[in-house]
Design a protein around this nucleic acid. Sequence first.
RNA 1: CGGAGCGUAGCGCAGCCUGGUAGCGCAUCUGCUUUGGGAGCAGAGGGUCGUGUGUUCGAAUCACACCGCUCCGACCA
Length: 508
Amino acid sequence: MQRALNVTRERFADWYQAVVRDADMAESSPVRGAMVIKPWGYGVWELIQQELDRRIKATGHENCYFPLFIPLSFIAKEADHVDGFAKEMAVVTHHRLKQIDGKLVPDPEAKLEEPLVVRPTSETIIGDAFSRWIRSHRDLPMLINQWANVVRWEMRPRLFLRTTEFLWQEGHTAHATEAEAVEETRKMLEVYRAFAEEILAMPVIAGEKPENERFPGAVNTYSIEAMMQDGKALQAGTSHFLGTHFAEAQNIKFQDDAGALSFCNTTSWGVSTRLIGGVIMTHGDDDGLRLPPAIAPRQIVVVPMLRDKPEDADVLAYCENLVKALSGMTAFGQPLRALLDTKKIKSAEKRWNWVRRGAPLIVEIGPRDAAAGNVTYMRRDDLRDGDKVKSIAKPRVDFVESAVQLLAEIQAGLYADAKARLDGNIKSGITSFDAMAAYFGEDDDSFKGWVRVAWSRPTGTALDAVEQKLKALKLTIRNAPEGQPQTFGTCIFTGAPGVEEILIGRAY
RNA sequence: CGGAGCGUAGCGCAGCCUGGUAGCGCAUCUGCUUUGGGAGCAGAGGGUCGUGUGUUCGAAUCACACCGCUCCGACCA
């Protein structure tokens, strides 16, 4: 069968790259590990930003912007933070270039007294501001968010999933009490969970990260984990309770109503352009991307079937009218995003381009449709009947009337499919490490998903040993899901009584 | 940074072993035909063969170095 892509999901890594390229999402750039996000991909990001920004503001946060450069001494203040990020920092050391022997090089005379780090995350520079902004308990809670780019010099980049520079939002808050900061951490995790599921149609498991997977400098780290179509986990968002670690390192103090000085409890939380990689690997199929309508830059694309004949004018007029009617409607609380594709390429080509890009509804209008007042359309979430493309013909009135409902159905359908995959592929009932090793070891290429097992939450060197044992099987602990049972089996690592259930799987 | 593979037209590849100065498919452009939907025929354009150095009368082809990409490790949103 002829498909819109020349790779299938059997070769998942190749397939992923083909979708990113053929759906016009992004491409690699001359800068190693840094990507160019193309209009279709950036359009998705803008919609993600828009809706998430709304939700972040609705929970009481305000947007700010902090500098891209962070003085090296700021980073040095929190010891764990240094350990965590030192190996992946871009550093600015000069402020001028000079021609030396015909080569343009950093001017040795223009060396900075203190090097500047390109932010890998902004706890330290925002914390510095907090230490000046916060004086009294009346200044708390301090609830700040910023949309920014950050740089982490990663070893192995992969478009959207792990790039040297990426776009994200980072929330940073300061609170009077530990309880309040912990509540904030959980609240934002819940915002991410709801956003991923409702808007990205990407079901996730929210839970707490084990100690060895914590953010450098955090007391607790929580995550939402999504299951990709190859069974691997993608950490799609994180929320950190930082305790007073950063407050102590940066002197973020407030005076309480009794006049006593205390350190603030702080939090930070973020999601990035990685979410787009998650959407691709959650919903894509062998014909390319399938976008949830809520984040599709174009929800309905109308392709006129033009034939260089006089009746083309009628077809175009009919299409323009249809797009106008659709654009006046409201879907997902916003004006419906419809497009008439008038690009001067073959109509068949247009159709397949929109299939690859994942436009939820693709409408094709020929002279007979126009004359009879009909539309012919395809649902991207239900594109084929066997090998054949499923074209649905309907009176125009009916289509326009049902368009919003159709988009809602597609959104719900994509979520339901992904939810069934997630729920159906978390294996419980494994009670020993060997049984788990056997499960992941057999027929190595097949779809494995995750396992849910009990453990005794070892710490220190015992946890290191667990980590190493898992690493040998290419496994990691994803998180301890919310909603734990009352009783637990024995720990598959230590044989001690379990205190918690955790998810284990392969990950991106 | 360690192991493996790969860099030849926009994309996918052949040619390399056995050195003789570049080819195929798709895409692009032009013309004609076709038209309920990924069309056919004819013609055309497009390449310092990743970069550099070396061997040679002659290098895509052989040697060395470097750069980049992909996969597997280490790192990670």
